[in-house]
Design a protein around this nucleic acid. Structure first.
Length: 615
DNA sequence: CTTCTCACG
DNA sequence: ACGTACGTGAGAAGT
């Protein structure tokens, strides 16, 4: 047995690493005693983050309580793996920090079904996010194990991540290759592996106490674990990739990028991503640049370049000047390069052996509770063009179904702020933006008025003012100011409620409490953001509740991605119509008397078919 | 590691 | 007193 000691919060804790069957039997004795005292913390070390790649390896499985950790070298196989697997199966209550990752690893490498693990898991990352959802950059603690441990357990808790980085470096490995390459008997690796479960174990009671003190309802904690499990199922299912199409597109984008880069090089821009070069070349061509970034540099983003190229942001010719050929080449080269690098290449590099991509769905990512999707970022695929979405497919014999909420954030605002006229219009089944335009400009309102009404509604949800709405919609400032004043007369409750929320926040320690009991900390110098936080967060929980409805209705197997106000699904072609209606039903229910409604779109095999692709 | 840019809701 | 656009992930360059 290898044994290490370390000080945590004034206690000496012990990390054991079994080396033979006698050691494993000692582990077994500890496990039986420990599991009767309370939950057992669990963690894994693996070869990296690419859980679904063919040569992925589980290296160690760690178990622990507040004082003792056991690091089982899974990679040695035999009894070590067998004891680890059977131990997990016999633990009634598991504590895991960022459970979805370990669920995926244990299912993939140890054959332990997510359906068995999830019901007995408490994810300390969920607890932490419900105490304070802010990232460190936003003034919060963050939800990483290290910063949480430093804050709640021991300021001197080791930064196991960065500690290992120096071990990796001393072995000639990098941050990327270290996890797979560090020897299984490296003492720092083993010690840190063990300390992580001890820290997780100590974190849980502290966070529970804090949630209790703050009055966070246990049902909210439960609900978040359900959502996390549903997202983990979607991640496991993944989406099929059209490999032939994606490879062809990838090389076409590479050719395009190279062609336009060569064109840009003729004007002295050898690197189309180097803003400094672009500025110099454009100034050299006699162009005048005025727009500056936050740090004072001349801005040369797509908006600036498009106007020099005499194009709208959508790429239509404006006919206002002679197009600058360099600006045009840079737009094209950057677009092709980014789309290849960020999308097609990532798809091909991250797919599993059967050609499916499994993005990581973080069910509680943003400070408002919104979900995010990583590796690849499938919430942010270009929607102006079918090209990239065309890469992703419904299953064999299935079609893509997308079910969208109708103006969900605005309906949420109507409910939360009790906006009388808006509620009535929604209940009457009116088109909200047309209704608003009619109230502001009278029965002869134009499509332009409807568009501006929509822009103002967005501005209200975001907490913005006339200037930003004017900038965003392109409407003259004076017109926007007049329209916004009229808007406030039509819907006086919005302004009034926003003010009240801000006032209340000052009395509650700068925290807004959402209808689901979620704590939304505000920044002292931008309390106006409370309107957005309330709407965005409640809309997220409207989606969350709808996802629970979907599971109850037996739709989980068809769900693929949550995209803020939309669920993407794959449904058997012959039942697609019926399944689509069922999804709509799960997303249609009243929020404080305001109907929340959703509409399904049924496509063909590829996601791109909903954006104009013919397959 | 920060800044800039660009993709989304 | 007044007005403030919100939330993400990702790649590349430059410090």
């Amino acid at each position: 047995m290898q044994t290490f000691h370390h000080d945590i919060a004034g206690d000496t804790v012990t990390v054991h690493v079994p080396e033979d069957t006698a050691d494993l039997n000692q582990f077994w004795d500890w496990l039986y005693a420990a599991r009767s005292r309370g939950p057992i913390a669990l963690d894994t070390e693996t070869s990296g983050l690419d859980v679904y790649s063919p040569n992925y390896r589980l290296r160690t499985v760690q178990f622990g309580d507040a004082h003792t950790a056991w690091v089982l070298p899974w990679e040695r196989g035999g009894y070590f793996a067998q004891y680890a697997r059977e131990a997990i199966e016999r633990i009634p209550r598991l504590l895991i920090h960022n459970a979805p990752f370990d669920w995926a690893v244990l299912e993939r490498c140890a054959g332990l079904p997510l359906e068995d693990l999830a019901p007995c898991t408490t994810d300390t990352q969920i607890l932490a996010a419900l105490v304070d959802p802010r990232q460190p950059q936003e003034g919060g603690i963050g939800t990483g194990l290290k910063p949480l441990s430093a804050y709640w357990v021991d300021p001197a808790a080791p930064d196991t991540q960065s500690g290992l980085n120096s071990v990796f470096r001393s072995l000639g490995l990098t941050k990327e290759t270290g996890w797979a390459g560090v020897p299984l008997d490296d003492p720092t690796y083993l010690l840190y592996a063990g300390l992580d479960v001890i820290l997780t174990s100590r974190l849980e009671p502290v966070l529970r106490r804090e949630l209790d003190r703050l009055g966070v309802r246990p049902q909210l904690v439960e609900y978040e674990h359900e959502i996390a499990r549903i997202c983990a199922v979607m991640q496991r299912t993944g989406l099929a990739l059209d490999q032939d199409y994606t490879r062809a597109l990838d090389s076409r984008l590479a050719d395009d990028a190279a062609e336009y880069a060569a064109l840009a090089a003729r004007y002295g821009v050898t690197n189309v991503n180097a803003t400094k070069q672009i500025v110099e070349a454009l100034l050299g061509m006699g162009e005048t640049l005025t727009d500056r970034t936050a740090s004072g540099a001349l801005r040369v983003d797509k908006a600036v370049l498009s106007s020099l190229a005499d194009m709208s942001l959508q790429g239509e010719p404006l006919g206002q000047r002679t197009p600058n050929p360099l600006a045009l080449a840079i737009i094209q080269a950057k677009r092709a390069g980014k789309w290849r690098q960020t999308y097609t290449s990532t798809f091909l590099n991250s797919m599993d052996a059967s050609g499916r991509v499994h993005p990581f769905i973080r069910s509680l990512a943003a400070r408002t509770g919104r979900m995010s999707i990583q590796r690849p970022a499938l919430q942010t695929l270009p929607s102006s063009d079918q090209m990239i979405r065309r890469c992703l497919l419904a299953d064999e014999g299935h079609v893509i179904v997308s079910v969208d909420f109708a103006a969900v954030e605005l309906r949420v605002l109507a409910a939360l702020a009790n906006v009388k006229r808006m509620r009535a219009a929604i209940l009457a089944g009116e088109d909200l933006h047309s209704f608003t335009a009619r109230m502001v400009w009278g029965p002869d309102f134009t499509p332009k008025h409807r568009k501006l009404s929509k822009g103002i509604s967005f501005g209200k949800v975001y907490g913005g003012g006339a200037e930003s709405v004017s900038r965003q919609t392109g409407a003259p400032l004076q017109e926007v100011q007049n329209a916004m004043a009229a808007y406030d007369r039509v819907y006086p409750e919005i302004r009034r409620t926003a003010k009240r929320w801000q006032r209340e926040a000052f009395q509650t320690g700068m925290v807004f409490l959402s209808v689901t009991g979620r704590r939304l900390p505000l920044d002292r110098d931008r309390t106006y953001a409370v309107t957005n936080y309330a709407c965005q967060s409640t809309a997220r929980d409207v989606l969350g509740q709808s996802m629970l409805n979907m599971e109850s209705a037996g739709l989980l197997e068809f769900m693929r991605l949550p995209i803020h106000d939309e669920i993407l699904a794959s449904a058997p072609a012959k039942d697609a119509e019926e399944i689509a209606r069922e999804f709509e039903r799960c997303m249609t229910w009243p929020l404080q008397g305001v109907p929340i409604e959703a509409e399904a779109e049924i496509g063909k095999r590829s996601w791109g078919s909903l954006y104009g692709a013919d397959f």
